[in-house]
Nucleic acid binder design. Structure first.
Length: 256
DNA sequence: ATGGCGATTTCTAATCGA
């Protein structure tokens, strides 16, 4: 089984890249973030033609998440249960026996911003809910744009970024909290090249100079950990014309 | 030098993302 996550920064713009990537990589599950479109605009037909089922929870301009899968998704859940949020950031479904949680965690903007407080409160709601969800679904994967670089080695210039949003101590503490509840950062289960990132700023030739951050992650529960065989960042889509600023993170596992 | 780029709506300008 191959599962992946990709913040596409507008599916309207990036649909050709997504269709090409599905055709070449043939993932069993692809989680998207920042589709930036209402459900009525979501390209269900094009994905069906490509051989995929699709779930979408979207809105105009901002946010929006999707789960694209070869097998029929079951037990679909929109958002975080019990947490009222206008922003479409979470979509959950069971695919081939694995509980797939697709999340677009808030950016936070800056430590002084109200958006940072929203991010921390949102993360608390997510972790509280995941504790329960894990009991119901031991085989669980949390895929998405976390907007958190967990360690300094996930940052191209830790000194320049020190204390800022995406790397601040409270954000990293929440990431640790996820690990403490028995989730594992699948990327770090395997040997990886230094300076591996999943996002690069469009400005200052960030990608060419590899000035990036690793903020897109696939966390897996204890029950899935042993079955993981490979995790990698696919930089190919970032090299295309008019790319997303994020690139896919991919995990191979057998869940049986 | 707090900018830069790209997407979107607010559309010869402003806001957001990370």
């Amino acid at each position: 089984m191959k599962i992946a996550t990709w913040n596409v920064n507008s599916l309207n713009v990036r649909l050709p890249h997504v269709l090409d990537w599905l055709a070449s990589e043939q993932p069993d599950v692809l989680c998207l973030q920042e589709t930036k479109q209402e459900d009525s605009k979501f390209p269900y037909a094009a994905l069906q033609e490509a051989g995929y089922h699709a779930l979408h929870s979207g809105q105009k301009t901002y946010n929006g998440v999707a789960i694209i899968s070869k097998q029929l998704p079951q037990a679909v859940q929109f958002g975080i249960p019990g947490y009222v949020d206008e922003q479409k950031r979470v979509l959950t479904a069971t695919v081939a026996g694995v509980r797939i949680v697709c999340a677009y965690i808030p950016n936070g903007q800056s430590l002084e911003s109200d958006k940072y407080q929203y991010k921390l409160g949102w993360l608390q709601a997510l972790t509280d809910w995941l504790q329960q969800e894990l009991k119901q679904h031991p085989k669980l994967a949390l895929l998405g744009d976390y907007n958190i670089a967990p360690e300094d080695r996930d940052v191209h210039d830790p000194a320049a970024w020190a204390g800022q949003v995406l790397v601040s101590a409270p954000e990293r503490a929440v990431f640790q909290q996820l690990l403490d509840m028995g989730l594992h950062d699948s990327f770090r289960l395997f040997e990886q090249a230094d300076n591996s990132f999943s996002w690069w700023d469009y400005r200052m030739a960030g990608f060419r100079r590899n000035l990036g951050l690793r903020i897109d992650h696939i966390l897996v529960s204890e029950a899935l950990k042993a079955g993981c065989s490979r995790c990698w960042i696919d930089k190919a889509p970032r090299k295309l014309e008019r790319p997303s600023d994020h690139t896919p993170v991919v995990l191979e596992l057998h869940s049986a």
